[in-house]
Every structure is written in structure tokens, then in C-alpha cells.
């Protein structure tokens, strides 16, 4: 029972922290918040196969019972994908910071200034 309580509150805390950080204005906390959210979902997916202690996920001769291996495979895929996505968004926010000089998730351009921006005149590289 204590294991279930620990898992549930842990996922809840991670999600809450993630959501709070995502709603902040700077892009750095947003990225960290997204990471927290993906940790939360990874643990959540893992628990979806039910909690089983000391049970192997693969077939063995001495095993008394098994834990569900599918959530573990799903978590592995999810970890890989969110890792790649996080790397991308880190690079993206770094580039945005270097090009605009502000670490800010607002578009940084007021609506009435839009026609004068220079998005399409960038030199090819």
C-alpha cells in the first residue's frame, strides 16, 4: 500500500511542478517544466502495468510470476522520444535567445509591429 501511495504522490508532485514551470514566462523554466512532465508520464506509464515487486519481465525458468513487460517497452520508447524532443527545444530556445537577446517565451514582438519584422529576409545558410 505504501508503495502505491509513494508512486501516486510522486507522479502528482512531478506533474504539479512541471505544470507550474511551464506556465512561467522565461523559456528556461518552460524547458525544465517539460522535462518534469515527461518524468511524470514515464513513471505513470511504468505503473500502468501494475506494481509488482521482485518479478522479472522476461521469461525465466525459476520465475514464480511476471510483471507486465509492455509498459517497460513503452516507457523506453517514450524516454527516447522525449529526450530527443527536449534536446531540440533546448537548441531552439538557445538559438532564439542568441538571435533576440531575450529569454522570453512571448513572441517578443507586439502585434502592431508584426509587418516590420525580418523573418523572411534571413540570409540562407
Amino acid at each position: 500500500m505504501s508503495m502505491e501511495l509513494l508512486m501516486a504522490t510522486g507522479i502528482g508532485a512531478l506533474t504539479a511542478v512541471g505544470l507550474y514551470l511551464i506556465l512561467l514566462r522565461r523559456s528556461f523554466p518552460v524547458v525544465i517544466g517539460l522535462t518534469f512532465l515527461s518524468y511524470a508520464v514515464n513513471v505513470f506509464l511504468f505503473v500502468m502495468g501494475r506494481l509488482a515487486i521482485d518479478r522479472p519481465p522476461i521469461v525465466g525458468t525459476s520465475a514464480a510470476g511476471y510483471t507486465d513487460p509492455l509498459p517497460q517497452a513503452l516507457v523506453l520508447t517514450a524516454i527516447v522520444i522525449t529526450f530527443g524532443m527536449t534536446a531540440l527545444i533546448v537548441v531552439l530556445s538557445l538559438r532564439a535567445f542568441l538571435e533576440t537577446g531575450v529569454d522570453d517565451v512571448t513572441l517578443g514582438i507586439r502585434p502592431d509591429e508584426q509587418p516590420s519584422d525580418t523573418a523572411r529576409s534571413e540570409a540562407p545558410r
Binding site: S38, T82, M85, L92, S93, A96, E99, V105, G108
Partner: peptide, 25 residues
């Protein structure tokens, strides 16, 4: 093609879709 405005809009786009992926999971 790059550009500051595209990067800013891109950050929003990536962030919303990352949250979407989490909700999907």
C-alpha cells in the same frame, strides 16, 4: 530558413506539441 520570429513561433509550436505528446502518453 531561420529568422528570429520563426524561432519564437517555433518555440511555442514545439512546447505545445511536447505537452500534447505527454497528454497522449
Amino acid at each position: 530558413g531561420g529568422g528570429a520570429r520563426r524561432l519564437k513561433a517555433g518555440f511555442h509550436y514545439v512546447a505545445i506539441n511536447l505537452i500534447g505528446s505527454t497528454v497522449f502518453l
